[in-house]
Design a protein around this nucleic acid. Structure first.
Length: 290
DNA sequence: TCCCAGGCGGTAG
DNA sequence: CTACCGCATGGG
């Protein structure tokens, strides 16, 4: 049993982090803690008074560095929040509301597959499919008497036929996952090299070569796995929020993507991706039952 | 029951 | 380059 404890950590709230829509493999428990699988580890996170307690099990590697990296603990979010809060009242308000949001550092390969699955899909079902794929093709790891499954490696997932993938409930995305897995495995797209690129557009163009990766999915990968904070993934929710706050077009559908990209770039000081998370979480959650 | 979901790829104009 | 359509499945 591994353990790691943080004290007096600002900008860290479990619900904000896990429910702002960036990840799919974390599940809330009866006691309010969250359990998830990252890399080779099962991790349980809970808040106790002013402490954040991480416990869990790793197959190989060290626990603390995995945690620090994944939860982006060496980044100072106060700096981001100060900058963004000054921009306008919406951002100030949204940051108060979701003050514990952090952008996780997710595994690139897992992120690619997960967001290909996200296309024209809903979050509960996305989570279910990813869980099923992990159960069938990922390594088992036991923690507190329960079995968990790591996300499969490309090698492991490449053993699935298109029909096997279809049986996971992937629907029309089966071929995309199949092709992309092959492309990554044979280094038609070298995702290790990809990580070392400096230019965001160069990275994006590489990602766009993958089957099932279009502009929106590519931007999610850039933001959630490659720390490109200046990208701005546009989905129906973001369009809705941006239109409501800044554009006021009567016909939301007609708000075009280029206009949104331009607005975000101009307004959010190179922190579009983070700004989006605050605004998105704020509007979505405060709109629920309020 | 029926609508639709964190788009994408293909094809037509 | 933009506009549109089909797509598998199951959650709500």
């Amino acid at each position: 049993m591994e353990k790691y404890v943080l004290e007096n950590q600002d900008s860290f709230n479990l619900v904000h982090i896990f429910e702002c829509g960036q990840c799919f493999r974390w599940n809330i428990q009866e006691d309010g803690s969250y359990i998830g699988v990252i890399k080779n580890a099962v991790v349980k996170v809970e808040t106790k008074e002013n402490k954040i307690v991480f416990s869990g099990k790793v197959l190989h590697g060290n626990f603390a560095p995995i945690i620090r990296d994944y939860f982006d603990l060496d980044t100072n979010y106060l700096e981001y929040k100060n900058k963004l809060s000054k921009i306008d009242n919406y951002l100030e308000e949204s940051i108060k509301f979701g003050n514990g949001i952090r952008i996780l550092n997710q595994d690139l390969w897992e992120c690619i597959i997960s967001f290909i699955i996200s296309a024209n899909n809903n979050i509960p079902r996305i989570k279910k499919i990813i869980e099923k794929i992990s159960q069938n093709y990922g390594e088992e790891i036991e923690f507190e008497g329960k079995k968990y499954y790591m996300f499969p490696t490309p090698e492991s997932l490449s053993r699935a036929s298109i029909q096997d993938l279809r049986n996971m409930g992937l629907g029309f995305r089966d071929k995309r996952i199949y092709n992309t897995t092959k492309m990554i495995l044979n280094k038609e797209v070298d995702i290790d090299k990809l990580k070392t690129l400096n230019d965001t557009n160069q990275m994006r163009n590489e990602l766009l070569k993958l089957d099932g990766v279009g502009p929106k999915v590519a931007d999610c990968i850039l933001l959630f796995s490659l720390k490109r904070l200046d990208v701005f993934p546009i989905d129906v929710w973001v369009r809705r929020v941006m239109n409501e706050l800044y554009i006021h077009n009567e016909n939301e559908e007609k708000v075009n993507k280029n206009e949104l990209q331009f607005l975000a770039k101009e307004k959010f000081l190179g922190l579009s991706g983070i700004a989006q998370q605050y605004l998105f979480y704020w509007k979505r959650e405060s709109g629920r039952g309020a």
